[in-house]
């Protein structure tokens, strides 16, 4: 794993500041599901993609944090429109890469999984109610990294949101798999060591029987 992480660090376009595409590559190394995607550099040719439609197009920059507010996301693109949508996006952000991804459909709530570094205790992993309102709900649970799957299960049970796993409104979300994902993220923090400053997976959703990280942001120590 050490080599894989080093290779990943070496491959970063903007050293120490991974973009969304690269952040997703990192979590994938730890078995966390991400949508199939392609990163297009400015000016590169693009007609079509082998990825299954529908598509979501996102500006893929390590410096833009809130893509939606800057019109940096186009949803529901199809095989016939994806090339035009890419051009439109490139006009908005002439110097940035564009990420084309399969747009996953999901039901059920969005979760957030994250990592921070505490000055006294080191890396801590968090799970919580995710999405754009995550900081308003403040429905979160923390443990130190690495944490076991059982610990992660306790964390999920601490959430106000946890009754969604009890067949709430017919939802069949896999709690055990989410716990495994939280534990895997904590392993990532442990393996990355001091290099890792913060990490956000928000949202992570349940899609085709797997938890899928729709957006990932990794922050490294300078």
């Amino acid at each position: 794993m050490k080599n894989k992480i080093q290779n990943w660090v070496d491959s970063l376009e903007n050293k120490n500041n991974p973009d969304e595409y690269e952040s997703k590559q990192l979590v994938r190394l730890f078995g966390i599901g991400v949508p199939e995607g392609e990163r297009l550099s400015p000016g590169s040719a693009f007609e079509k993609t082998s990825i299954d439609p529908p598509y979501v197009l996102k500006v893929c920059s390590s410096t833009i944090l809130h893509k939606t507010e800057l019109q940096g996301v186009i949803l529901n693109s199809g095989p016939d429109t994806v090339a035009d949508d890419r051009n439109l996006m490139q006009k908005r952000f002439p110097k940035e890469n564009i990420l084309v991804e399969h747009q996953s459909s999901f039901t059920g709530p969005e979760f957030i999984i994250g990592i921070i570094k505490d000055s006294a205790l080191g890396h801590a992993v968090m799970v919580g109610a995710g999405g754009v309102f995550t900081e308003i709900y403040k429905d979160t649970a923390f443990r130190l990294a690495p944490c076991s799957v059982a610990d992660a299960g306790d964390m999920i049970e601490e959430l106000a949101l946890s009754p969604v796993f009890d067949n709430f409104r017919g939802l069949t979300l896999d709690k055990e798999k989410l716990a495994k994902t939280v534990s895997a993220v904590s392993q990532l923090a442990d393996k990355m060591g001091d290099k890792l400053s913060q990490l956000d997976i928000n949202p992570i959703v349940f899609c085709d029987e797997e938890w899928l990280a729709l957006d990932v942001k990794v922050m490294l120590e300078p």
Binding site: G114, K117, L121, A124, T134, E135, T140, F142, Q198
Partner: peptide, 27 residues
């Protein structure tokens, strides 16, 4: 506890509030 978040840019950093970390750790 102080949470060393270099620039609080992540959601997780904003949500940590630091006491949450010690609470979780003790459990």
């Amino acid at each position: 506890t102080e949470t060393a978040v270099s620039a609080v840019s992540s959601h997780t950093g904003k949500l940590a509030g630091s006491d949450n970390v010690i609470s979780g750790a003790l459990k």
